[in-house]
Design a protein around this nucleic acid. Structure first.
Lengths: 344, 344
DNA sequence: TTGTACGCGTTATCAG
DNA sequence: CTGATAACGCGTACAA
């Protein structure tokens, strides 16, 4: 047997790169047959298949998904953008999302955007350059150019964790404004006439707080004292928040609406350290119903959002888009629920 | 002007895909010049550059990184595998890692492996198919085939969060065994003669615990009561752990070594709920020195590991590899430190 | 069941 | 400073 055509020059680096052609040569078939063996084993003769599999094993061949994506125009990649991966809220959603989506052979390219839409825009562009088959975004505020790029990409785009009438494409979230309002109604119904807030984090937290404050004003004349922190929530800031409320604003009794359970827990700890009864003197409402919320003392009254459900729902609508059949609803409102425990 | 060559047939989908060729046509240059304008603007005439930039803006062109990677044999992609992204320990490391690595133009493809090395093996293969320029792994236990594939890939590989004499390539971690031992010495030195443990999570947690138990036996004859949970740590399990220790094992006084701060916090809460003084009757040692550890009551005595430092160090060694100059140390021991607070 | 030819959108190399 | 031209490794026709 003589070599067909010219010798393919070996790769730049060392011994190297194993390709389907290499595997094919070893198995006595062409590159295409190897490709077929991998994508649909039933389309190649059993005996051939065995030889190909053996060749793959001895060479340690790993397919090049880059080349595959380029040729097929499908990357099997989904990119996801979240403000922060260390924030359990986003991490939990992403976890559920990727578990569901991975079952269908997709991988997740994940990046943190921080809080600046301009940074997000840059990231959207780099992510788009990987030619993802779909994109998952957090929130509904994006720059105009970001929207244009997304639209132009012609792929399913899901905006998660917030809700809007006019999503770029798809949207899975809940109303932060409604959540703030309901918390205010709950607090008023529970009989609290004074209220304060401790907030940190992103713009959505601010929106919940604003809604709480506005709604609480309907129930009580007392001004709502507000403590806001830049950056992310922490137990420490919860403690500082109550300290400021008590020392700086003369807040001695009432309910404190927090933008996260972590802050709420901090408020509880600080209250107890100061000898203030919870909920007797200081009542606390958190947000998120995180794992620990039910198990601290007293249990945290909080706003529950089913985070994994958001990730799963996002995966569903994307898969539905892929599927082509059943076009998914443009907007999915997963809602929230106030769960009353000991703290308020 | 007449059209050169044949009409390139338009893409399958709608109006479609903008390529460098499209941009070039609009700017009156060839595709190659567009490529150059993007990779090294100084190599094209200012006037040309302007026209190209204008064309890019009007077309909304986003480069295809897949094609670029295929041609250049560099994907600018780094894949990372962690047991869980919702675990703050891993999330914090990844965060620091990607911040550092992104400055150099790399993106992170992240996946969760869970706790099974076999699952990890599968994931390593799919990740490798994306032809990453480097790979970040958690821990030092991998299947033989995984090691082979990694070696065969010929890229920098970092094993993070644990330490070994014989890394696949590079290793950035600390000794979990040493950590367990030092905790035992610390506990003994503090005068505790009875000890218990509450553990959850991965194999590394088990190793710390085993080391603690073995070492504590040098100091005291009292058997160490051990409560182990499957799955991940939570506040609730911390509470259950102490409950089991007290009710089930007759543990009424001594120090409890926990595999995470979250568990430790749970133990503290349960102790106080039972009217047991902390650290008077029940002393607690955590692990991780997480944000909240210093701010709960009493402050948690714990083993501090500088998680962001692991991520950064991992980034550094990879970048050093890329750089080619300064070959990085194969193993970096970042150590740990016991920080004594109120709980023990 | 298997193979040939071609294109996917870039980068690398060599000319001009 | 700019342009041809050939890879890069694989999928998709179409043919045998």
């Amino acid at each position: 047997m003589n070599e067909p055509e010219t010798q393919p020059k070996e790769s730049h680096r060392g011994g190297g790169t194993v390709t389907m052609a290499t595997v094919g040569r070893l198995a006595g078939v062409s590159q295409v047959t190897v490709s077929r063996a991998l994508s649909d084993p039933t389309r190649v003769a059993p005996a051939t298949l065995d030889r190909i599999r053996a060749a793959i094993a001895t060479t340690g061949f790993v397919p090049n998904a880059l080349a595959g994506a380029l040729a097929s125009r499908r990357s099997r990649l989904i990119t996801a953008l979240v403000p922060s991966i260390t924030n359990i809220v986003y991490a939990a959603m992403i976890k559920a999302f990727s578990e569901r989506i991975r079952e269908h052979g997709y991988q997740i390219l994940l990046s943190e955007t921080g809080l600046d839409p301009a940074d997000e825009e840059t990231l959207i562009e780099t992510h788009l350059s990987r030619r993802p088959d779909a994109m998952l975004l957090t929130g509904i505020h994006h720059t105009a150019r970001a929207r244009r790029m997304l639209l132009g990409a012609g792929i399913p785009v899901v905006e998660m964790w917030d809700i809007t009438e006019s999503p770029i494409d798809l949207c899975v979230g809940f109303s932060h404004v409604e959540a703030g309002r309901e918390a205010a109604d709950f607090a008023a119904a529970a009989g609290y006439v004074r209220a304060g807030t401790v907030s940190a984090g992103d713009e959505r937290a601010a929106r919940r707080k604003a809604a709480f404050v506005a709604r609480f004003a309907r129930h009580s004349d007392a001004a709502v004292e507000q403590v806001d922190f830049e950056g992310s929530a922490s137990l420490e800031r919860g403690r500082q928040g109550l300290a400021e409320l008590v020392n700086g604003r003369g807040f001695s009794r009432g309910v404190v609406f927090c933008s996260s359970d972590l802050l709420a827990h901090g408020v509880v700890i600080e209250a107890r350290a100061r000898g203030l009864a919870v909920p007797g003197q200081i009542a606390v409402i958190g947000f998120g119903d995180q794992d620990f919320a039910a198990h601290v003392e007293p249990g945290l009254t909080t706003i529950r959002v089913d985070r994994p459900a958001f990730g799963r729902a996002a995966a569903e609508v994307i898969l539905a888009r892929f599927d082509g059949q059943s076009p998914p609803a443009a907007v999915t409102d997963l809602g929230f629920r106030i769960v009353a425990r000991g703290s308020a």
